[in-house]
Design a protein around this nucleic acid. Structure first.
Lengths: 202, 202
DNA sequence: GTCTATACTAAGATAGAC
DNA sequence: GTCTATCTTAGTATAGAC
């Protein structure tokens, strides 16, 4: 392996590390309160060096944002695909919720926020992000539509508000979730039975 | 009314207006993305003039934060107090949820956030805010404890996680709530029946 | 009470050496 | 690839006139 290849590996390693660090800090203290110098410090380098890897702070934000949404989609899809064909709605919902909670735990919730996020970014990237969001929403909509058809749930076919409440509850979990006390799997089960059965005695 | 009194009225009016504007902008675009110049512009004055009314941006944040929590507490208390003595848990929960949603709609949710909010502030103010938060949490805890004692709900006496999911769902509503489509009262009823009965057929 | 002018600071970003 | 040094911009905040 020659010097050039090593340098290239170093670049890939540094880029990946910077993304990890930035994602962590964004989750911990928010994007606005995370500076390039903060990220650089934790990475053990100077802020200017980051610009060798990324064109701007916005570029970093976009990379992480996009990756987070993609990750949520991927994890939910995989969790659902792993289930046996005959799995009912409750099981499928629990799998999806748990996968989603895991992503929220790893990346925080900023990937689900639109309003606060106005990084001035190229139209292509904005559009790609919009598409990803729609894709994620579609997964949930389909899941509920299936459940509706199978008669496993009572809500209307157009289940928007119920879905918004459920996803909101999951999104907010980033504020209090402590995986050392309850694993995402445990929380996912709790959320599922809460959402399915409520808290009133049957 | 002499000139001095008028000046005083003007000051009170301006202060109140600035708080309203700041609260709106914080909700719309987030605290970090709202500058003193932004606030001043919407208020029709120069940024430096704000400092006649408030010592700093942090002072504004704290005023709004404190007022928002106080408002949530006040509205829930009043909504519960207005109910007939014999009102059951479901009715009481619905009243509290609706009151809370109204506050979320008016002030956004940043009043419920801790992690992102690190305005370096005097210990006294920080402590006062902490107390208010505890007070708000206590109201919910009591409500659920009552419901538990009356046998109206199935969850354990220590109902922390269920409460966190419910409040999370309500907090997140600030991201999508559109009162021109559904009023807080309608949404409150929907959230209540969702939380009480779930979506599975009985 | 609000203005103009300006000080101060911190952040994002670039240039060029090594 | 990362450094030092520096530019530029934008934000909070102050001083003093009116």
């Amino acid at each position: 392996m020659d010097a050039k290849a090593q340098r290239k590996d170093g670049a890939e390693y540094s880029s990946a590390m910077l993304l990890e660090i930035a994602a962590d800090m964004f989750r911990e203290r928010g994007i606005a309160h995370t500076t390039m110098r903060n990220i650089a410090e934790r990475a053990g380098m100077k802020a200017s060096s980051i610009y060798y890897h990324f064109a701007s702070k916005d570029a970093i934000i976009d990379r992480i944002l996009d990756r987070s949404i993609a990750e949520a989609i991927e994890r939910i899809r995989r969790a659902l695909a792993e289930l046996p064909q005959e799995a009912g709605f409750r099981v499928r919902l629990c799998a999806a919720v748990t996968a989603y909670l895991t992503t929220v735990n790893d990346y925080g919730t900023f990937f689900a926020v639109t309003r606060q996020l106005r990084s001035q970014v190229s139209p292509e990237i904005a559009e790609r992000n919009r598409q990803r969001r729609i894709e994620l929403d579609q997964i949930w909509a389909n899941l509920f539509a299936e459940g509706h058809r199978a008669g496993d749930i009572t809500i209307s076919e157009k289940n928007t508000i119920e879905r918004l409440f459920l996803l909101g509850a999951l999104n907010w979990a980033t504020e209090w979730m402590d995986t050392s006390r309850k694993s995402p799997a445990e929380l996912g089960q709790l959320a599922t039975s809460l959402f399915m059965d409520g808290i009133a005695p049957r």
